[in-house]
């Protein structure tokens, strides 16, 4: 089974500090990590490969330093890694990112399954996975919380919905986006880490993947960022002190007065 896992390098937002005076993000010194949801996708791919055989290729679109994220996935056990990188891809929104990744995946050859994380923790769009599926005109299942069974030409999964889940069987090839409850990602082994350091990582540019002029990068992106701003930080309100019961009675009173409860 040929499995492609699309990953993204993201800033570790749990490490982001906020400047208490200006209320802005302090980005300096924030480490880059593999998007946490993508690690669940890598783990899901490795487990399917362990059961069915085949090959796991991780792919990312990003600047040259994104190879670090690819190496982490190789250290976890991925067989191959591909960086899709070109200055011409700068300014891509989810439309042209999914187009570019779809083209890159096609350039790599035949595949059975494409896995993505549910969403990336920096942009939080959850749009690139379905976008890839649409560009490739193949099936998709999003919010996968469990892989139930894999056959040669189909896969059965649980898809999370509000208040429950669906059991879905989809033919292959397909795109799955993986949620956190699907598995527990393994830590890279010592051997894996050594292998990852030596791994030669192929870079694909616009010329290598047959993208159509006007469909990638800023030109291909229907959306534009008008402005970005830091929201006013939420201010702490009142601390209700004194005896616990007194404070709680006061709380209930406030919630009633504000018509919240």
């Amino acid at each position: 089974m040929e499995i492609i896992v699309c990953i993204k390098q993201v800033p570790d937002t749990t490490e982001v500090k906020i400047d208490p005076e200006k209320g802005t993000l302090i980005r300096e010194g924030v480490p880059s990590i593999v998007n946490p949801f993508d690690e669940y996708a890598v783990e899901a791919a490795l487990r399917i490969k362990e059961e069915k055989g085949g090959k796991v290729t991780v792919i990312t679109m990003g600047p040259p330093q994104a190879v670090d994220a690819l190496r982490k996935c190789v250290a976890m056990g991925a067989d191959d890694a591909v960086l899709v990188s070109d200055r011409a891809f700068a300014g891509s929104d989810t439309w042209s990112t999914s187009y570019t990744l779809a083209k890159a995946i096609q350039a790599l050859g035949a595949f059975d399954l494409i896995l993505c994380g549910k969403q990336a923790i920096d942009g939080d769009t959850a749009q690139v996975g379905p976008g890839i599926a649409e560009h490739l005109k193949i099936s998709q299942v999003t919010y996968v919380q469990k892989v139930l069974g894999v056959k040669e030409d189909a896969i059965e999964v649980e898809r999370g919905i509000e208040g429950g889940y669906e059991v879905i069987e989809t033919p292959l090839p397909a795109v799955l986006t993986i949620d956190k409850s699907a598995n527990q990602p393994r830590l890279p082994s010592m051997m894996g880490t050594m292998k990852a350091l030596k791994k030669e990582i192929k870079t694909l540019t616009a010329r290598d993947i047959n993208v159509k002029e006007g469909f990638y990068g800023m030109d291909g992106s229907p959306t534009r960022v008008k402005r970005t701003f830091t929201p006013p930080p939420r201010k702490g309100g009142r601390m209700l002190g004194g005896e616990m019961e007194e404070a709680l009675r006061e709380l209930v009173k406030i919630l009633r007065e504000e018509k919240i409860v």
Binding site: P11, I18, L25, D122, G123, P222, T223, R227, T228, F229
Partner: peptide, 16 residues
């Protein structure tokens, strides 16, 4: 919101 709500962005779709 982006970056977990630490940044807000206003997005337009001008020509599509």
């Amino acid at each position: 919101p982006a970056f977990g709500g630490n940044v807000m962005a206003t997005i337009l779709t001008p020509e599509h």
